[in-house]
Design a protein around this nucleic acid. Structure first.
Lengths: 217, 217
DNA sequence: ACGTTTTTTAACCGTCTGGTACAAAACAGG
DNA sequence: CCTGTTTTGTACCAGACGGTTAAAAAACGT
């Protein structure tokens, strides 16, 4: 094992693939930031999770904050993409709402990384998100869905006519988000009863009932 | 202004006051950690907020993590102390519940620092809190209150008999906590309509109604 | 064949940061 | 007033960390 073998090991024969490299970095950075926060996130560690070098990170993302911005936007993009697959337009308002809540709750549960990124951004004051019109736009559809449901519900008399779609979204988010964001402390204090698999299903369905009860005319 | 004046400026003639010094440090550390997170929190900055020196931080709290532990315990202690002043035992279950929720909501709103500390501890995995039996004990009373309310409500027929006190606590916490924890991102995306003063009052009262609707027999 | 973009390698740096060594002042007990 | 213990101040360090630089080579578009 001489120096000659090691030094140019990867130097010969590689594919050019800017897209893949960036995706690779983004994925690693997401892991690292989600696990350790922004300030706790180490560029060095991100590199190790990657198949490329530190140089490439700065080549594509400028600096740590630029990388964070990219991670956050990517996270919102992929998360909201899944949401739009839901088609609630055909369902009766009450059923649509239940389906939306159950989906949201499960969706948050499946995407722990996303939750953590949002938590971190909140602690940082949300200024990166505030500067991103892209992320703002990504969130329009959810509220639009709820506006549609509320309108239809008010018309056919199944929902209270005074509902605020945005507040409704706030509520669904609150219940789904808190469930993940405060898992550690809540379970640490009160035990994991609400957070093991069976408990989560019970909790979710119980909350769904309550939401419906709250909006029914 | 010679060196002789500056260097030993505070060196001569000072009072010994361990209790005050620790309180001073704890307060400054709370500020710093709440503002900048754990990893973003700088010992140096804490010192500047203090009337003592860096040396004292390590003298009393060992290391950064020890300081964090102390800050977290202190925060829980002072926050829960305020809660116990509530006396709900005399009120009818429904009124007691409304009062408890409104109090919790406002309480969280008043204590933004506490919220941020809990967020940070959650991001860190909650292992400091998990190791503190003290904090666990501090949280018993709240659930005890709810158990009492549920029991009385089931007896006099005003509340559904199948309510889970712990889940109820989870819900009140979720709504009150999310309101603060995700303020930055939520307002950044959807505007501050729900978060200005008027919006918060409306939101709070509306949520209170919904909670009651959900538990009524 | 040639200029541009992407990628590799790898050494390097200025600064920040948690943490410590050492000594002096204050205090308590006798 | 002496003496041992506790509390405080000052100066300092070793390592980590984000970020940079330089040079070059492979890949690619044209």
């Amino acid at each position: 094992m001489t120096d000659q073998e090691k030094a140019p090991a990867k130097r010969a024969g590689w594919k050019r693939d800017p897209v893949k490299v960036q995706k690779d970095i983004l994925q690693a950075a997401t892991r690292e930031f989600a696990d350790n926060g922004y300030n706790g996130g180490r560029i060095e560690r991100i590199v190790q999770l990657t198949e490329t070098s530190k140089r490439m990170i700065y080549y594509y993302f400028g600096d740590k904050e630029g990388l964070w911005r990219a991670v956050l936007e990517e996270a919102y993009t992929s998360i909201r993409a899944q949401e739009t697959e839901l088609d609630l337009a055909d369902l009766p308002p009450l059923e649509a709402l239940r389906k939306l809540f159950v989906f949201t709750f499960d969706h948050h549960r499946r995407n722990a990384d996303f939750i953590r990124l949002v938590m971190i951004e909140n602690i940082r004051g949300g200024h990166v998100l505030a500067a991103s019109t892209k992320i703002r736009d990504l969130n329009r559809p959810v509220v639009a869905m709820l506006e549609d449901i509320c309108r239809r519900g008010a018309e056919d008399g199944t929902l209270r006519p005074d509902l605020c779609p945005l507040q409704l979204h706030w509520e669904l988010s609150a219940l789904s988000f808190f469930n993940m964001s405060n898992r550690a402390t809540f379970a640490g204090i009160f035990g994991a009863g609400l957070h093991d698999e069976a408990g989560q299903i019970r909790l979710r369905d119980s909350l769904a009932e309550q939401v419906l009860r709250a909006v029914r005319a």
